[in-house]
């Protein structure tokens, strides 16, 4: 027996190292906000002890949609077609409801070509994490404005955007998403808390993450640059998450936190910062987003949550076992059933 103690490898509650949650080497630009988001996803899934091979990652087309290759390398991934990740994810989750699903898209995917699918995904409240890596610009085609770019913001070439923007969080709240959050790729702690909450949410989580494009949208006049966000980001609370398997009677005096119990007994704790904010009230959420915008601020945090809403699986009366692997004895009715139907048609 050696006397020099080898430090035990750090593992999570299912015995995996953080290495098991990493993906391939990123091919995005150095400093791209999307890379920070990938890192936060790795940490959140690792810390929550999610089995990587029971995760399905989905994306559309664009810089953001490349990123599922750069996290959770042991998870199944599907880089589909532009704007259509929601339908692919819907089908896959129906085939196997036991999986954790995560969609990563960009603002081109979400607010333009795929807005129809985004809207209907929210109506269905499918248990799924929807990440919008929002930089206001089409990066992969070299710098055109997207539909989330602020009116009046400037492109790298000096062109001023004269179109109104689409606020995907407002849209989400309006259309029935049951968890709506906004964050900034540079806010490590807040984003981690939001992701952890989303992992325990039994419905659709829409997370709009302002993620500056260092190549085409990180200049003076852009409202989705690092410097703009550092000046205008107004975190409404700090997001802590206490999973159901941890002792919840920790820290914090009443009055400083707002505690939301999730469907599985986990607790979302919103540590009060600037104001006392109730994220379970739809009108509050809409008002907060609109007031902040008027003041030239970007409110970040969990803007809206309804943790116990009926989800799409419940609505469909779906069985618990994955449909994908049901045996023939369940999926093919017996000969007597066919005989009965034939008799009726005589």
């Amino acid at each position: 027996m050696s006397t020099t103690a080898v430090p035990p490898k750090k593992v999570n509650r299912i015995g995996l190292e953080v290495l098991n949650y990493k993906g391939g080497k990123t091919t995005l630009c150095a400093g791209c906000g999307h890379n920070s988001i990938s890192e936060r996803i790795v940490e959140a899934f690792y810390e929550m002890g999610i089995q990587p091979w029971n995760v399905a990652k989905f994306s559309g087309i664009g810089c953001s949609s490349k990123s599922p290759a750069y996290f959770l390398g042991l998870s199944h991934g599907f880089n589909s077609v532009h704007g259509r990740a929601p339908s692919v994810a819907t089908g896959a989750m129906l085939a196997n409801r036991t999986m954790k699903g995560i969609i990563v898209t960009g603002d081109g995917d979400t607010a333009s070509i795929g807005i129809g699918q985004f809207v209907h995904l929210m109506r269905r409240n499918l248990p799924l994490i929807y990440i919008l890596e929002d930089n206001g610009v089409y990066g992969l085609t070299k710098g055109q404005f997207s539909a989330t770019a602020e009116m009046g913001s400037k492109s790298k070439g000096g062109v001023v955007n004269d179109m109104r923007k689409i606020d995907c969080c407002l849209l989400g709240i309006e259309l029935g998403a049951t968890l709506v959050a906004r964050s900034f790729s540079g806010d490590k702690k807040q984003l981690q808390g939001i992701l952890k909450t989303a992992l325990h949410h039994n419905g659709l989580s829409v997370i709009d993450i302002i993620s500056p494009c260092v190549t085409f949208n990180d200049h003076e006049g852009s409202t989705k640059s690092y410097s703009y966000m550092k000046e205008h980001d107004l975190p409404i609370h700090q997001v802590d998450f206490v999973p159901y398997y941890e002792d919840i009677s920790i820290e914090m005096a009443d009055g400083e936190v707002r505690d939301v119990e999730m469907h599985d007994g986990s607790h979302l704790r919103l540590r009060k910062l600037g104001r006392d904010y109730d994220p379970t009230n739809k009108r509050n959420a809409v008002r907060l987003i609109e007031d902040s915008e008027e003041k030239g601020e970007v409110a970040t945090g969990i803007l809206y949550i309804r943790p116990r809403e009926e989800n799409f699986f419940d609505q469909l009366g779906l069985m618990d076992a994955p449909l994908a692997t049901l045996p023939e004895s369940i999926t093919r009715p017996a000969q007597s059933a066919l005989d009965m139907v034939m008799e009726e048609l005589r």
């Binding site: 599907f78 589909s80 339908s87 692919v88 089908g91 896959a92 085939a95 129809g116 209907h120 449909l323």
Partner: peptide
Amino acid sequence: GEASYAVVQAEDELASIGMVIGAGWAGA
């Protein structure tokens, strides 16, 4: 009372085939 199937009336044909492709990929 549980169903061994899911039927979704999609928002358009782009979505209906997308769901079928997603489901087929996942083994349905």
